[in-house]
Design a protein around this nucleic acid. Sequence first.
DNA 1: CTTGCCTCTGACGTCAATGTCAGGTTTTAG
DNA 2: CTAAAACCTGACATTGACGTCAGAGGCAAG
Lengths: 127, 127
Amino acid sequence: MRIGELAARAGVSVRSVRYYEEQGLLSSVRSGSGQRHYTDEEVERVAFIQRLYSAGLSSRTIAELLPCVDSPSEEHSEAALERMAQERDRLSAHIDDLVRTRDTLDKLMDTAREYRDRHFRAPVPQD
Amino acid sequence: MRIGELAARAGVSVRSVRYYEEQGLLSSVRSGSGQRHYTDEEVERVAFIQRLYSAGLSSRTIAELLPCVDSPSEEHSEAALERMAQERDRLSAHIDDLVRTRDTLDKLMDTAREYRDRHFRAPVPQD
DNA sequence: CTTGCCTCTGACGTCAATGTCAGGTTTTAG
DNA sequence: CTAAAACCTGACATTGACGTCAGAGGCAAG
C-alpha cells in the first residue's frame, strides 16, 4: 500500500509517517517513481510507534528500542534489554504519578460535590 | 519567601514560577520594590501545578480547574465539576494506554530474554 | 488526453513550556 | 560601603512532533 493508506489505517497523518522514516523508525520500499510502499505489517508498527510516543518516549529512545523489537540478536540484546527495562521503569513511575494526580483530582471533586450539595441542593447519588 | 526559595522548594525553575503567574495559575504579593513574595502554601500549589502539567494538562485547562480548587462556589462549581470529570476521564484513558504500552514492553522483554537465553547462555532466574 | 487525487522533496510555521540573555534594581553578606 | 547574589522586565531562542504550503511529478478513470 502507499503512504496515504498506511497513515489512514494506522490512524496517523501522512506527515507523521514521513517523519518516522526521517527519524529512522520506519523504512519503506520505493517504487521506480520514488513513491513509498508498505506491507500490512507496517500498520502495526506505526501504531506501536504512536503508542510509544504517547507514552512520552522520544524519537531517539524509540529508535534505540525498535532494533531489539525487530531482531533480537546478540549485538544489541544486552544493551537493548537494559534500555527497555529503564524505559519500562520510567513508564511505571510516570503511571504512578498520573494515578496520584488522578487521586488528587478525585478528592478535589469529592470536596467540590460535598460543598455543592451542602450549600446549593439536596445530595444526589454519586455517579 | 521570595521566588528563588519558592522555586527551589517546589522543585521547579524560577522561570517557570513567573510563567505560572503569567498564565494566571499563581498570584504573588509584591514588595515595594516589586519583588514577589509567597507563603508556604504556594509551595504545594506550585508542586500541584507541576503535577497537572506532567499529567498532560495545558495551562488553559489548569487555569479552568484551579478556581474550583481555591474556592468552591456556586458560580463555577457546576462547570468546573464537569471540567474536572472530563479531565479525570482523559487522564484515566491515558493511564490505561500507558499500562497497555507497558504490558507490550514487558512482553517484548520476555521475548528478548527468551531469545537470549536460548541462543547465548544458560537461563537465569528472571529478576 | 485530461482531470483529479495522491505523492514527492524541501522549507518554513506552530505551539507550549521553558531556557537564556541583556540591562537594570534590590537585597544580603562581609 | 561594596561586591556578590538574587530579583525585575522584556524579548528572543529552543525543542519536538508535527502542520502546511509550494512546485513538480505520478497514476487511475472517463
